Amino acid sequence: MSESQNVIEIKDLDVRYGWGRHSVQVLHGVSLNVAAGCTVGVVGESGSGKSTLAKTLVGTLKPTRGTVMIDGVNVSSVRGADRLKLRRKVLQMIPQDPFSSLNPRHTIGQALAEALDPRHADVKKHRSVIAEWLERVKMPAEAMSRYPHEFSGGQRQRVAIARGLIPEPTVVIADEITSALDVSVQAEILSLIAGLRQELNLTMVFISHNLAVVRQVSDEVAVMYQGKVVEHSPTAELFNNPQHPYTQSLLRAVPGTPGFSIDPGITEHISHENRAIA
């Protein structure tokens, strides 16, 4: 695809933690483009730099070198109101742990109203839109009057997805959003994401350590190893003909290996979910 179609353009990205001689470089010259309407899965073992990349994309970490352009905006250069606008309307993150990211004193309706309109987080004013989004993530409209602790982990993740998508952002970053869920609930969430991707033509970076999950949801896959992108190609091509030795080793990994897995159970559950939806 041409560069004009790229919503995300990452070029020569270095990121360090700490200062001076005690600093540690975590990302090394990362370059990655994501086209409009494309989901790129970012996969790698713990410590490979996936979460650091996500934090740099949303602007919570500043690169020591290189640029992150999202929808034509240099993420590290925006300040004040422009930064808030970027975080709300252009870029949203769906977190790994929705329970810690949801205010326990706010109802689900308040959480969604605030995401939709931070200045006027009025549930009554936005009731119809909130109800519509709850329905989209397969939650009942009456959930808006309840609190996060009243729901299961899978239900809270559905709320987190609705909260991330309700502002209709240009880009969505999903960071290990199924890792804390059991296999059957993971399958439900992945089927939900698949439907929303198609319905909304989402541009998404989907971060995971699980190859089976990434294979189900991604158009392309970027493999990270020791802070570098060592391979990036269409999903089918990467799984059928991996080029980098590290990618090859991941695909040979024994299911359930700590820190990385190819879980066939997820694929089976997802297939069942898709048949049920059809």
Results as ranks from 00 to 15, higher is better:
His120Pro: 00
Leu112Ala: 06
Gln92Ser: 14
His106Thr: 04
Lys125Tyr: 10
Glu114Trp: 07
Pro118Gly: 11
Asn103Cys: 03
Pro95Lys: 01
Ala115Asn: 03
Trp133Val: 02
Glu135Asp: 13
Ser100His: 05
Leu116Gly: 03
Glu135Pro: 03
Lys125Gly: 05
Trp133Ala: 00
Val123Gly: 10
Asp97Ile: 03
Ala121Leu: 08
Gln110Val: 06
Val129Ala: 12
Asn103Ala: 02
Ser101Phe: 05
Leu112Ile: 06
Arg136Gln: 13
Asp122Val: 05
Arg119Cys: 01
Ala113Lys: 05
Asp117Lys: 02
Pro104Glu: 12
Asp97Gln: 11
Ile94Asp: 06
Trp133Phe: 08
Asp117Pro: 06
Ala111Gly: 07
Leu116Trp: 13
Glu114Gly: 00
Ala131Tyr: 02
Asp122Met: 09
Val129Gln: 14
Gln110Cys: 07
Lys125Ile: 02
Lys125Pro: 07
Glu114Met: 13
Ile94Lys: 05
Ala131Asn: 14
His126Cys: 08
Glu114Ile: 12
Arg136Cys: 01
Arg127Met: 09
Ala121Cys: 06
Leu112Thr: 05
Asp122Ser: 10
Val123Thr: 14
Arg119Asp: 05
Pro98Asn: 04
Val137Arg: 05
Val129Tyr: 00
Ser100Gln: 13
Arg105His: 13
Ser128Leu: 15
Thr107Ala: 04
Ala131Ile: 10
Ile108Tyr: 02
Leu112Glu: 06
Leu134Phe: 00
Arg127Tyr: 02
